[in-house]
Amino acid sequence: MVMKKLINHPDRVVDELIEGYVLANPKLVRKHPRVNAILRVDAPVADKVGVVIGGGAGHEPLFLEYVGPGMADASAHGQIFAAPAPELILEAIRAVHAGKGVMLLYNNYAGDCLNFDMAQDMAREEGIEVETVRVNEEIASAPKGSEADRRGTTADHVVIKMAGAASESKLPLAEVVRITQKAVDGSRSLGVGLSSCTTPATGREIFEIGDDEMEIGMGLHGEPGVERMKMLPADATVERMIPRLVEDLPYQSGDEIVLVINGYGATTRMEMFIVNRKIRSMLAERKIGVYATDIGEYCTSQEMKGLSITFVRMDDELKRYFDMPCQCPFYVRY
């Protein structure tokens, strides 16, 4: 597949997408004057723990569009699919620090861990209190028992919401960390990829998959999954995914979850709704309750076809933070 995108030059993709985003949302966000970080217009917010998210670009709306009241205070952007540099993250930390400390929240990839860890060390040397929560809910990326090796993906959508609400409640840093970590610990995701995507960095497809094939557990960057097979109908696909998700944590009878169905970039809402009804019937059979459902594009991979399913286990405390208002351009709760 030849790359077919409305871009100007590969080296300018990230700068230009950030510029265009900020122009569209001037009341909500501004760009850091020197680096590719998006900040809340009112950052730093007094008496509030700063929440800094970030990662490679190319997954929009993640991370770019998750900055706003009740969500993150800043997002630090790397190049396409590449982690942001430590200095960039450090600038984001400084920009949102209001004296109450800063929490770094990002996905558990080697490049992100290295760069955010280094930024954390640098900020601590400046006397800023910084803690880290890594999202690692994708079950195909490493077996049970090796959770520390797992990648983070769409759980970000709910986890960032929790972190934003907890920090907006003016809780101390340790509490914001505890609540965010609880949301991560109760999260599990599994995806199915139907087609590859092309990346502006190289202009090429990032992996190969047959026209009649699908792969369960495929990663956002084409990382191999757990099972490649001939295309199946929606219900049969969901039947292969839900047991893996339920059994991994495990989610038990009586549990309540937030359900997220995430399109990878070229998936129709039609397909997502069809998938949702099968997920709901399978959850009902297992007496797992659905507290809320979000269906849309949250964590994409360019024009990749396919979707991911995320469960986030809720308790009374997490429900409270999930229900608090938040505002970012594509996602509002009130």
């Binding site: 540099a85 430590p86 200095e87 490049g111 280094m118």
Partner: peptide, 14 residues
């Protein structure tokens, strides 16, 4: 460290 990012930036920066 400042201009490269990814794993390469940190490791060779270090």
């Amino acid at each position: 460290l400042g201009k490269v990012g990814g794993v390469t930036g940190v490791i060779f920066g270090t």
